[in-house]
Design a protein around this nucleic acid. Structure first.
Lengths: 210, 210
DNA sequence: TGTACATCAGTGAACGCGCGTTCACTGATGTAC
DNA sequence: TGTACATCAGTGAACGCGCGTTCACTGATGTAC
């Protein structure tokens, strides 16, 4: 049965939100269209009215999950511009490890992305690049031979690996899992020149990163 | 039809090897028992004669993939004890990114592990811990506030994230993918005190890491 | 060493199930008059 | 404003397919005599 345009748009948003949450929790390959539709209060037929395929929905869910993640972080900081400490504390933490549903979607699906549609991997690449810009803008000075950009890229890669490793070890070796988070948090603070930010740059314009 | 004990053991090894390769290429959830059995030249019934479940096979494939990866690296170095440069050049490279089938299984399945049987995640945790010991043993001195153990953990986490990110971005932004590898390789060299190893320790005893 | 037979590795049909996707249909919406 | 009807968002049955797992059966192995 037909439905108002507003209702239809709301349904679309519900599908994207449900897909994002479930993909983060169980992986993109671990969730079916039936579960996504049901979680959004619809049938799978409605999903195919809104999206041409599961892959297209996955791409949109990834893109919007990246936006939502960033919004969640800034709002937790009272809306002020986050600095390096804010980023690292938020990204490399037991909270991020334990909250699959609400966490960063790039982290949750990292090793799965390479096997998805090119639309999905393009979203990942864009999100990664934006996050790199955001981190680069808040880096402090260090004596590193690596330039700011290189240090920013390394910080994001390390964050992704740290959360993946912390999650993978959480059940069988919880102490190791915590140790990984503490170690990476500390080392990335040093790489980033934490606390040595003399001139704070503003975040780059354009879409918000992670 | 029954088969000699030697043949049966050979078949078991073929299953483990095929499973390891296919899991790395397509992910644990992305490969079925039929494909594994076929690749090993058997039927799925034979697989269930050797292993109680797909998960049990996955655990064994992961454990033995970690051993094989280490052997491949040391043999490439002519059998001598690898140093930090050897580890980093081998692990953070286009070769590692592009060779899913032959690469490190911890890297290939990182974000999938947390959703597998506890036997699988236990193998991952053991492999991670062993690799941390191996890296710690070849670290150079730095002025870092983080101790050797923390730097070793951070290096492995960063390596996992770097390969995952480089693979995820390879199709849509190949330049970014290469940039990630170069950046992480350089920054990890600095973290590890590359080239500043005064007293070289031997690798720890016990099973070989990665 | 030669024969009889119990063992058991491997085969392949079958199980129920969930997958992604299609499509004929329903019926409220929203437009044309 | 009131009526007639085209539009189209959403439904749910059905599609072919591959999944992990089970099991009755086969027939070569390897042992007991």
């Amino acid at each position: 049965m037909k439905v108002t345009k507003e209702k239809a748009a709301e349904h679309r948003r519900a599908l994207v939100r449900a897909a994002g949450r479930l993909f983060r929790e169980r992986g993109i390959e671990g969730v079916g269209v039936a579960a996504i539709s049901k979680a959004a209060g619809l049938t799978h037929g409605a999903l195919y009215g809104q999206f041409p395929s599961k892959g297209a929905l996955a791409a949109e869910a990834l893109a919007q999950g990246i936006k939502r993640g960033y919004a969640a972080m800034t709002s937790a900081k009272g809306g002020r511009e986050p600095d390096l400490t804010d980023y690292l504390d938020f990204l490399i933490s037991p909270y991020q490890r334990d909250n699959l549903a609400g966490g960063c979607p790039m982290t949750a699906s990292a090793s799965e992305i390479a096997r998805q549609d090119e639309t999905v991997s393009a979203c990942f690449a864009d999100g990664f690049a934006e996050m790199a810009d955001a981190i680069e803008a808040v880096l402090g000075e260090t004596k590193s031979g690596a330039d700011r950009r290189q240090r920013a890229l390394a910080i994001i890669a390390a964050e992704i690996g740290a959360i993946a490793a912390a999650r993978a070890t959480a059940k069988s070796q919880p102490d190791l899992s915590n140790e990984i988070l503490i170690a990476v948090r500390r080392v990335l603070g040093e790489i980033g020149g934490e606390g040595r930010t003399s001139k704070r740059k503003a975040a780059p314009s354009g879409r918000p990163p992670m």
